[in-house]
Design a protein around this nucleic acid. Structure first.
Lengths: 122, 122
DNA sequence: CCGCATCCGCTATGATACTG
DNA sequence: CAGTATCATAGCGGATGCGG
């Protein structure tokens, strides 16, 4: 009924189902920017320029592209009052990424303390 | 003292510190393969070919490259008994990614149910 | 101010064959 | 088995300028 070998029953982390789920998740949120975009949208809806400024180094081009991809994946919703006045907000599905973002953030902080310093600082 | 506006004090998710942490984390685990590699190593050490087979579509080249990057980031350790007999295992730091992987996996599963079906299946 | 289009270099990923 | 070398390509990402 299950395809994993025995001896690993309580932690079937290498099952193909798990790898598939990870692949699906990565497809939606991978790349340099999407997680950051979602992070800045977590608290409240924002306009294009606001997102751009908060993230800082992203170009309009990339922000535009990434917002579209996030929209396609139903993670954000775009509300256009009129042209030159659009607002982006997370959908409920997008908000469900919050635990993941928190984990990413916590881990990133630890990682910087443990590793990045000794990689770049020396 | 802080640069966020008020009204958002309990959830400063757009602070530059948070974005920085996310960036650091992404630097270590981004790309199509690293999360999957870590996932298959979570339960026990494995050999090169085992990892390759478990992940399935990865080429030797990519696996080699990604393993090196993970080693550089101190997430895995390579033990070479003799040539043509190497073993890879997660460091403690690498194991600390487990909660993140679990979140990623859970979210990916939900995401497939909610979105990917309607994106590709139709 | 909002967002998209074009040009272009760079990086990530892949296919394949080869070495120890 | 455990990689490395070579070649090819798609997409990422930056610079810049345009149109609403």
């Amino acid at each position: 009924m299950k395809e994993e070998e025995p001896g690993n029953s309580q932690c079937p982390l290498n099952s193909s189902k798990v790898l598939l789920s990870i692949g699906d998740a990565l497809e939606a949120v991978n790349g340099k920017w999407r997680m950051k975009i979602i992070a800045v949208l977590l608290d409240e809806p924002k306009r294009f320029r606001e997102i751009s400024v908060l993230i800082g180094q992203i170009t309009d081009r990339m922000l535009s592209i990434e917002l579209k991809k996030l929209e396609t994946n139903l993670l954000i919703r775009r509300t256009s009052i009129y042209s030159a006045q659009a607002e982006y907000e997370l959908t409920e599905h997008g908000k469900s990424l919050k635990p993941l973002i928190m984990e990413l953030m916590n881990w990133g902080e630890t990682h910087r303390g443990k590793v990045i310093g000794s990689l770049k600082g020396e």
